[in-house]
């Protein structure tokens, strides 16, 4: 199936001379949640802004559901809802007025029932007549999401959607994003919270220094790069790793009570069985053992560090 967003050779150099994007190629599949990860200044917001028509590209093309964003901008833009990173709201307007305004702006006839449903979904219904400036930060963020959803977009861009949102609310937002995905909306989110990508994304893209350095299915990524570790809790502390075991990648905790073994989960022979046998041979008993997978955050940090 044709990707819903296709980016080819996208470059952006700002008037200041700063090159924010250095040739981006990216495909985003229909109906997926795509998480764009990257350190500050990597080009996440610039990329989103170009796709949404706020910033002009210096070179390259973008198509949205087959519509070129420059030559066929009207069709392309009607499909997109954008929730920018910064909390920018019409402070003096009521929630209802500002959300209805967005729907009109995107060329849709008024639909109070739909606006009501969106506001209820986002727990904003009670506040529909309040002025936006009277709302809390988390509520303002939800007003911006409501504005983006008001015109029933097929693609939703969320630039750092949960920045400055408390944990409970963040959960609620994740659930809402999950529901949107079920209704067939493609969601592209940028985030600093790796756990957010880990929790929700189908595909993860990593951008750094204006280049896409990796795009991978989240599960595949975690498997591919995933280091596992086996932690053994010892019955009695060890003063040091026995010399006979020195050819194993083992580390001993400071108190000598934990022995950690790193292995590659993709490898056919993980070496666990022989290690445990040899520990038995040497009379090292353990009370407990657990294995852990490295998190997306560790993968991400190691990736970005590698490239720098």
């Amino acid at each position: 199936m044709q990707p819903i967003i296709q980016v080819r050779g996208l470059e952006k150099t700002y008037a200041s001379g700063f090159q924010a994007l250095k040739g981006i190629d990216l495909d985003i599949r229909r109906g997926e949640i795509f998480a764009l990860l990257g350190p500050n200044g990597a080009g996440k917001t610039t990329l989103i802004s170009i796709v949404c028509g706020i910033v002009r590209a210096s070179a390259g093309t973008v198509t949205v559901d087959g519509h070129d964003i420059v030559t066929d901008w009207r069709a392309a833009r009607s499909l997109i809802g954008l929730v920018p990173q910064e909390l920018t709201t019409e402070a003096f307007e009521s929630v209802w007025a500002t959300v209805s305004f967005s729907r009109g702006l995107f060329g849709k006839p008024p639909n109070p029932a739909l606006i009501e449903r969106i506001l209820r979904d986002l727990s904003l219904w009670e506040k529909k007549d309040s002025k936006v400036m009277a709302l809390s930060g988390g509520m303002k963020r939800r007003v911006m999401i409501a504005k983006a959803l008001s015109h029933e977009p097929r693609i939703l861009f969320l630039d750092e959607p949960t920045a400055g949102v408390d944990v409970e609310l963040r959960r609620g937002m994740w659930e809402m994003i999950g529901r949107l995905r079920e209704s067939g909306v493609t969601i592209i989110l940028t985030t600093h919270y790796i756990e957010e990508a880990e929790e929700m994304a189908d595909t993860v893209g990593v951008i750094s220094g204006g280049r896409i350095i990796l795009v991978e299915k989240k599960a595949a990524l975690m498997e591919q790069l995933g280091q596992r570790q086996l932690t053994l809790q010892l019955q009695s502390p060890l003063p040091a790793i026995p010399a006979e075991l020195s050819n194993y990648p083992l580390t001993l905790s400071a108190d000598g009570r934990e022995l950690v073994y790193r292995f590659d989960s993709q490898h056919e022979h993980t070496g666990i069985a022989t290690l445990l046998r040899r520990l038995g041979d040497h009379g090292i008993d353990f009370t407990n053992l657990r294995t852990e997978e490295s998190s997306l955050e560790e993968i991400f940090v190691s990736l970005v560090r590698e490239r720098v």
């Binding site: 954008l82 920018t88 709201t89």
Partner: peptide
């Protein structure tokens, strides 16, 4: 206020 982003990103 920054709300201009919406007008710029709208099909208008």
């Amino acid at each position: 206020s920054g709300t201009i982003y919406e007008v710029l990103s709208a099909p208008i």
